[in-house]
Design a protein around this nucleic acid. Structure first.
Lengths: 111, 111
DNA sequence: CCGTATCCTTCGCGATACTG
DNA sequence: CAGTATCGCGAAGGATACGG
């Protein structure tokens, strides 16, 4: 953290980062892509059986619009579309791991 | 990240962590407390002039319920209530900094 | 000074049906 | 296979007024 940060500007930066992660399925999608690197739409549907097509597409499109995920369309019949992380998307992993670690260290019983 | 994580379990852990951070004013409150360590309710009101009393209280109460913030009530007239971070709340800082860093490194123009 | 209580609007999400 | 279109609900949050 550089010295010129105010509470306001730092909070705005973090909120901007969190905004691209908000959404019922994005984190789960990202962790699947952390593991598989390249997945078809139908792979993701099978990996996440509880999501509807509409929501899966919607979240993927937002991730793509925000530059975390790349969408690769193969001009074939039947259609084939693959998804993978961008470089920037992969760089998110340490931050999510830090969050995961922090969450696990929660002292449940304490004040 | 330990080896027994599946995409599902890792995502659930991260989502649990994110859930306590979601809320229109929580991040901003946290960064003020990162800087000041001990703030009265009225200090926070002045520091965040755009928040309503209702929302400020609500977010503070949730942060308290989730164990990030401690509420200290001084039995005086007029009432005095102070807020500070718990140990666990302070430990969140590196994770938020990582997120901030990541957000700043976004390659705006790229695919 | 430090809250509570209502009312109201917005928006994310799920369910469902349809298409190139 | 990989989407798009429409409907409706519930929860989050803002405005406002009141209370110990």
């Amino acid at each position: 953290m550089r010295p010129e940060y105010t509470p306001l500007s730092a909070a705005e930066g973090v909120e901007a980062a969190l905004r691209v992660l908000e959404g019922r399925w994005k984190i789960l999608i990202l962790f699947h892509l952390f593991g598989e690197r390249l997945m078809r739409f139908s792979d993701l549907e099978r990996a996440i059986p509880t999501v509807s097509q509409k929501m899966l597409i919607q979240q993927l499109r937002k991730l793509e619009a925000d530059g975390l995920v790349r969408r690769i369309v193969h001009p074939e019949v039947p259609p084939r579309v693959e998804y993978c992380l961008t470089d920037w998307g992969e760089k998110l992993r340490p931050a999510l791991d830090a969050l995961l670690l922090w969450g696990e260290r929660k002292p449940e019983g304490e004040a």
